[in-house]
Design a protein around this nucleic acid. Structure first.
Lengths: 137, 137
DNA sequence: ACAAACCCTATAGATTTAGTAGATTAATAA
DNA sequence: TTATTAATCTACTAAATCTATAGGGTTTGT
């Protein structure tokens, strides 16, 4: 299941991507528009900023804005930052690999081989989708 | 992330599917072979039985066995029983649909549309894979 | 009698989803 | 220059839910 953190994060990014200019938008403004708990959204935007997706401006007239063009933000990046690994098991993860302790041989593991396929398909979707694609729908 | 419940369940099913005959196999036997906590496995096999995948026999020589041929058990069924919905958000789920309370219009929701694609791809994998496929690897 | 599944309860730990309180920074008005 | 206000930032807390077991007793078939 997708966490609300990720869901809200994507919605916030889409909201920012749909702005005409790229001026800072206050958290409260996004929070109201997208029905997201303000303080929760605050922490989500913070992690997006720390990971190079967003930038922020403090003080009056401040807020968050995109660091790149929506077309230059692939959903793989967003998903990995917010949700973590894209694969359903660590033993097939590209960026978060971890060996299973209960599994003597990965290549003989039914779960491993099945989840490889799922990962490949899911990865294809995220790789071929940028934030810009989400903004136009 | 795939829960251990699902992972163990698939491993147990694969183990059963690889048996030459379809005689009952004791939980303890599966537990040892696949390195799965006995009591946890117990509850997993129980839900698989209640959902028509497995049958059981009590007493001496008893255990669990498959109700159908491995080739007749699609992974969609297994996943839905053990893991629940295949989609990452309830609002794109076929079998576990639920409306989002924060979302006024599903068709305009970026998350919704993205997750539809992911669901379709994942579903394809599970639909085209039966337990028999997992047993041969 | 024994061996096996069955069933019920509890629980420690992790994760998720926030809420609360206050500090810091920057623009603006007096 | 100073005060005010609007905003982000930081840290702590907390409720709720989920996960992965563990324990113990019951029932049923051989």
């Amino acid at each position: 299941m997708l966490s609300k953190k990720t869901k809200y994060g994507i919605k916030a990014l889409t909201f920012l991507g749909r702005q005409e200019d790229n001026n800072p938008v206050a958290i409260a403004s996004i929070s109201k528009s997208e029905n997201i708990s303000l303080k929760f959204l605050e922490s989500i935007l913070l992690t997006l900023r720390k990971n190079g997706i967003l930038a922020s401006k403090k003080g009056k007239g401040g807020g968050y804005y995109l660091l790149k063009l929506p077309s230059e933000i692939p959903m793989t990046d967003v998903m990995r930052i917010l949700e973590g690994p894209i694969s359903m098991v660590p033993c097939v993860s590209l960026n978060f690999y971890e060996k299973c302790d209960d599994c003597p041989d990965e290549n003989a593991c039914a779960v491993h081989n099945l989840m490889m396929q799922v990962r490949d398909n899911t990865l294809d979707v995220f790789r071929n989708t940028s934030l810009a694609d989400l903004c136009n729908c």
